[in-house]
Computed example of a mutant assay.
Amino acid sequence: MKEREMRVLSLEDTRAALPFGALIAALDAGFRAGAEVPLRHHHFMKTPGAADDVLLLMPAWQQAGWGGVKIVNVHPGNAGRGLPAIASSYILFDRLTGVHKLLLDGGELTARRTAAASALAAKRLARPESRKMLIVGAGRVGANLAWAYRAAFAIEEIEIWSRTAASAEALAVELRRGGLNARAVPDLEAAVKRAEIISCATLSRAPLIEGEWLQPGQHIDLIGSFTPEMREADDEVLARARIFLDTDHAMVESGDIAIPLASGAISKADIEGTLAGLCRDDLRPRASAEEITLFKGVGSAIEDLAAAVLAYESLTA
């Protein structure tokens, strides 16, 4: 690859460049190394007679080495045009020269690094012998979660629950075609009680997981609540678990954390650490097989940068 040549990766190319085993390791290394991560930029673009379009910019850079920015366009009106509402790209650049090196599919990068970050957190928080997984939500991230966790644990059984039973069944069929032991389930409470790892990736605005359902030794992974109004777990889930976040931004960005903090159901003292701290200090804080652990992720530009660097290095190896 020439010094000033920028490689462009399609969705399929981006997927192939980010295998989950290597991606989980790359995120671990990325959190250890750290980076400058400004707050996400939101720009609202007015559209007469329609909902605002939104431009999101998510940059991160190292002191030396690499930098990058994810660009996301959210256009609600695209539903009427037969187009996806979200378009996303990621640009990786050389930190010294600013030369753009790689353009990746932002949606695929985000889905894969989100699932990989959850699996990385589980490697440090869940019981290593965990074999039974429940995926709540059957969307794009949910599909990636099965493979990410399979790269981190010897998962033997995967159950899938979705508000739309057909979606859960479709995902189960897809995973079975890939060789995984997966099945759709209709009863969320019963599935939660059976699972050792519970991973939620939904757009729910009201709690789905109830604390009274939890069993000793479980690990709960909450992905979907990425605004202050969204929730996937009730207050009792948070009260029963040891809580870890991907970054401190989750305390204001996620309703799963912000709402119980505001009501007093939990306090900041109940939040024991971040994924960055777990990786940096090489911690596995579970003290017993009976503890319930919880990881809440809202995403970090460090994850995007680490994934893009991995993709570039795999292309130039």
Rank of each mutant, 00 (worst) to 15 (best):
F226H: 12
E129Y: 10
A154H: 14
R183M: 02
L171M: 14
R280S: 09
L39H: 11
Y90K: 08
G107R: 09
F20N: 05
G34I: 05
A191N: 03
A190S: 14
G68W: 01
E313D: 13
I24G: 01
I197M: 15
A33V: 03
A64L: 08
D28F: 10
D235E: 10
A201G: 06
I259N: 11
S225P: 03
D248L: 14
P207M: 13
I158E: 00
C200T: 12
A26L: 00
L175G: 04
S88T: 11
R127M: 11
S89G: 06
H41C: 12
M133P: 05
L83W: 06
A191P: 03
G67L: 01
T316A: 10
C279G: 13
S314K: 11
L208W: 03
D28R: 13
T274W: 07
I91D: 06
G139T: 01
S204D: 01
P38F: 06
K70F: 07
L55Y: 15
L109A: 05
S167H: 15
K296P: 13
L275Q: 07
G217T: 07
A287W: 00
A301C: 09
L92N: 07
L11H: 13
G224R: 05
K132P: 04
I160S: 01
A138T: 01
I243A: 12
W161R: 00
E290Q: 15
P38K: 07
K268V: 12
V298R: 04
R4Y: 13
I220P: 06
A138V: 01
N78K: 12
K296L: 11
L208E: 06
N181Q: 07
L109N: 04
G264P: 04
L83G: 02
A33S: 06
I71Y: 12
I91N: 14
L275Y: 13
T97A: 11
M133T: 10
V252Q: 15
L245W: 10
H100A: 15
E212C: 14
T47K: 15
L222F: 09
R40W: 08
D246A: 13
D221C: 08
G224Y: 10
L104E: 05
I257W: 09
E236R: 15
Y149Q: 06
I259H: 11
D256M: 08
A301F: 04
I197Y: 09
I209H: 08
P216I: 03
L305M: 10
F226G: 03
F31T: 05
M58R: 11
L92H: 09
A308L: 00
D105P: 02
A172C: 02
F295A: 13
V141Q: 11
V99A: 15
A190R: 09
S225H: 01
L56N: 14
E189P: 10
G179T: 05
A154Y: 05
E210T: 10
D94T: 06
A115I: 01
L188M: 07
A276R: 07
Q62K: 01
K123S: 13
S88W: 03
A111F: 08
K70M: 04
R176F: 02
H41F: 14
A35M: 00
E129T: 15
G142S: 10
P59L: 09
A115K: 00
E253D: 15
L208H: 04
E303R: 05
T316G: 07
L96F: 12
E12V: 06
L56R: 14
D282C: 04
A121C: 14
A317P: 10
